[in-house]
């Protein structure tokens, strides 16, 4: 199967980050089981609005990558820290923001995980997959909150 998805890291700059509140916000402990429940709720809404299986797969994959990054890299897997997940799902698009309590990072500094000297490293593919499967991926200025947008398809 030929893929037409881009593999280039293309997270947009902080200027594209929309900081207006989204209608639904959940605050959970930095715990992946708790995060799964939020993920399932968002996916239920998308499926209920007729998003295609491919579109729901893309949202699920990107949401998992964002949450794992928040838990593992942002919060250093500290269960005393929080993950804040905000979302809006309607007939046009899914918008999700995932924020952690870490110090943030610069997404522009990420190396190409598909380069020959990095291809066999076990980590570092999360943001690349988000960029490949979402219509828009951008971080706030601090780098501790990512916004994912997927148009209905």
């Amino acid at each position: 199967m030929r893929s037409n998805r881009s593999h280039e890291p293309q997270a947009r700059s902080a200027a594209d980050f929309d900081s207006r509140p989204l209608p639904h916000q959940v605050v959970i402990s930095s715990d992946l089981s708790a995060a799964r429940e939020v993920e399932e709720e968002i996916l239920r809404k998308a499926c209920g609005l007729g998003y295609s299986p491919d579109c729901c797969f893309a949202v699920r994959l990107s949401l998992e990558e964002a949450i794992v990054n928040a838990h593992k890299h942002g919060n250093k897997a500290d269960p005393n820290k929080k993950i804040i997940i905000s979302h809006q799902v309607d007939g046009q698009r899914v918008v999700v923001r995932v924020r952690d309590e870490g110090t943030g990072f610069d997404p522009g500094e990420l190396p190409d995980c598909t380069a020959p000297d990095r291809i066999s490293l076990p980590n570092g593919r999360g943001i690349m997959l988000m960029c490949a499967y979402m219509d828009s991926v951008c971080y706030n200025a601090t780098g501790n909150e990512v916004q994912l947008v997927k148009e209905k398809c």
């Binding site: 199967m1 593999h7 491919d54 995980c113 291809i119 997959l129 490949a132």
Partner: peptide, 16 residues
């Protein structure tokens, strides 16, 4: 499955 194959292709892990 096609969706999993696509992830392997996008990440170029089919080279491994």
């Amino acid at each position: 499955k096609p969706a999993i194959q696509e992830i392997l292709t996008v990440t170029k892990l089919t080279s491994l």
